[in-house]
Structures are given as structure tokens and as C-alpha cells.
């Protein structure tokens, strides 16, 4: 009986831990600003050359902003995955770790993005950098 109580207590604690983590996620996750925002997307290619796309947007997430930047000349593509789009080509330059040991790093205001492009929030004044990175 004592063993059974311990098991029930353990399972309840496990479920409560999941509930606490979900609460933390919804309370603390990065959220995008609503409304019009001025943002910049900078692409740093393998030679260190930077190309900047500055514009105003209403979108909430980086991928939508990158789609809007296509009108200004940004080109990108990648592979869809459970985590969202894994970008491997930007402005015609291919970087994929398993193929050529390089990858595209994403930064927001000089800090490494914590989310993929599908879930990376866009806020007013954000400067995104997409940097060709050789491992």
C-alpha cells in the first residue's frame, strides 16, 4: 500500500511538473509586438559582405518578415522540419552543416535567436542578422 501511494504521488508530481513548465512557457515566452514595426534584416555572406533590408511591417514572426523582404530582393529557402523551416540557402549561397560544414546563424539585436524563424517574435526596432557561419 505504501509503495502504491509513492507511485501515485510520483505520477502526480510528474504531471504537476509538466503543468508548471507549461505555465512558465506561456508566461515567460518571448511575444511579438502588435501593429506596425520598423525592422532591419541584414545578411552577412561567406565573404563578410553585408546586405541590409530595412522596412516597416505588421508581421509577428521572422519568417513572415523574411517573406516580405523578398519584395526587396532577399532570397531564401530551406527544408521544412518539425521545428519549422531550416534555412540552408540565403541569397543563393548554400550552407548546410552535413554537406559543407557551414550553417546560417540567426541573431536578433546581436543576441543569438532562441527560436526558429517560424517562432522568432518580431518587435519594433529589431535588427536581425543572418550570418554565414563556418563550423
Amino acid at each position: 500500500m505504501k509503495k502504491r501511494s509513492k507511485i501515485i504521488l510520483g505520477v502526480v508530481a510528474f504531471v504537476l511538473l509538466i503543468a508548471a513548465m507549461l505555465t512558465a512557457f506561456f508566461m515567460l515566452r518571448e511575444k511579438p509586438d502588435e501593429g506596425t514595426k520598423s525592422i532591419s534584416i541584414q545578411v552577412v555572406n561567406s565573404t563578410g559582405e553585408t546586405k541590409e533590408y530595412k522596412f516597416k511591417t505588421d508581421v509577428l514572426y521572422l519568417r513572415q518578415a523574411m517573406d516580405e523582404a523578398k519584395e526587396k530582393g532577399l532570397e531564401y529557402s530551406g527544408v521544412e522540419s518539425t521545428y519549422g523551416l531550416m534555412v540552408d540557402t540565403v541569397n543563393g549561397e548554400f550552407a548546410e552543416f552535413n554537406t559543407n560544414g557551414a550553417y546560417w546563424s540567426f541573431y536578433v539585436n546581436d543576441a543569438y535567436c532562441n527560436c526558429g524563424i517560424d517562432t522568432q517574435p518580431v518587435n519594433d526596432g529589431d535588427v536581425f542578422k543572418i550570418v554565414y557561419t563556418k563550423s
Binding site: A24, R29, A111, N114
Partner: peptide, 22 residues
């Protein structure tokens, strides 16, 4: 703050990991 932001962003996948392990 950096560690917290990084952890929070991955919580849904931690839950998948925990339930999967169980």
C-alpha cells in the same frame, strides 16, 4: 536572463522529451 529565455523557448520540446522518456 539569456539562460531563462533559452530554456523557456524549448519547454514544449522538453515536455515531449519527458513524456517520451516516461
Amino acid at each position: 536572463a539569456t539562460a531563462l529565455a533559452w530554456w523557456v523557448a524549448g519547454i514544449p520540446w522538453d515536455i515531449v522529451h519527458g513524456v517520451g522518456n516516461f
